[in-house]
Design a protein around this nucleic acid. Structure first.
Lengths: 165, 165
DNA sequence: CTTGGAAAGTCAACAAGGCTGACTTAATAT
DNA sequence: ATATTAAGTCAGCCTTGTTGACTTTCCAAG
């Protein structure tokens, strides 16, 4: 497969071995990425699915259920189970839409925002430490590769979130 | 771009907003990362857990169950369920250790290697495409940040795998 | 104004893949 | 001899994903 064709020296980063290392790096790094929030969630009797919902509601306050469904890529039934507990526990508020009353707009309550802060503080701390030790140029490369790895629809969501700070 | 010295402008990549974008990039990219293998596994009635076992047995042929356990970070019972089906289906071979007969050494059979190839071809294709579109320097940064994000023990496993090609 | 379809929510049932705890067997190490 | 280790197993539980069927509410188009 790696025949060493014309101009192959410049493509050494595309060897199967390099790609395999990239795959393993993703695997091991993702474990670290989720480790801190997972520990915190244990104390609150929530799981990763709750974290994801909280994260994106925080990022896009007032988002609809349908939009959240599309971002998270799960079924309505699956999200609803998680969302119901968050609403019942008073972490998320669901307001009937004004323009379209079929829609529900989702917001974090004060308690929800507090948990979001706790979770994202931990996750950002690890990310900050990794960014700092790798340096700004590495971070730019990191972001470029990750974005190129996304499915188009996910990349759309990712870039849409840029503005909605 | 990166102004020399630990000034303040040079740390703009460490803002909360930048870190949040990094977190979301990890989330969306990981989805893409697993999407292709997931589709293939469906046709074989296997899941992501089987993929992980196959991947690391392929990477370290003859590895013991205990070592695999430590790499995957799951319980013995959880791994065993997956391993048993792979052995029963003739994708993995379990050989009694010669030096220590308590140990079992794991190997892919020809059929196991075939599935591994099918899975990793798909995953590498995506990784290759992302690498190519981002370029060699971005890839280096990508790897640096991911490695810095790992827990120390996972980093140890990651680097140990470098040699065992 | 009726009707079709969209958004949300719910119930039931199921599967994958984590977990704990308890226990066995075989073999090594002390 | 005994303790420990590696592997494997059984049972049961939890989270989080899935399908499928169905309801309620509401908007929009005929």
């Amino acid at each position: 497969m790696a025949e060493g064709g014309p101009g192959s020296e410049s493509l050494l980063f595309l060897t199967d071995e390099q790609l395999r290392k990239g795959i393993e790096a993703m695997f091991f790094a993702y474990r670290g990425f989720t480790a801190d929030p997972d520990r915190i969630l244990e104390n609150h009797a929530y799981g990763r699915a709750h974290h994801r919902a909280i994260h994106f509601i925080n990022r896009s306050p007032g988002t609809t259920v349908n939009n959240l469904l599309s971002i998270l890529g799960v079924t309505k039934q699956s999200l609803n189970r998680v969302l119901r507990t968050l609403i019942d526990d008073g972490l998320v508020e669901s307001r009937v839409g004004t323009r379209d009353k079929r829609e529900r707009h989702l917001y974090l309550t004060e308690a929800g925002a507090a948990l979001e802060r706790e979770l994202s503080d931990a996750q950002r701390a690890r990310m900050r430490s990794a960014y700092r030790s790798a340096g700004p140029e590495a971070v730019q490369g990191f972001r470029q590769v990750l974005e190129a790895m996304m499915d188009p629809e996910m990349r759309r969501h990712f870039n849409a979130m840029k503005d909605a700070g």
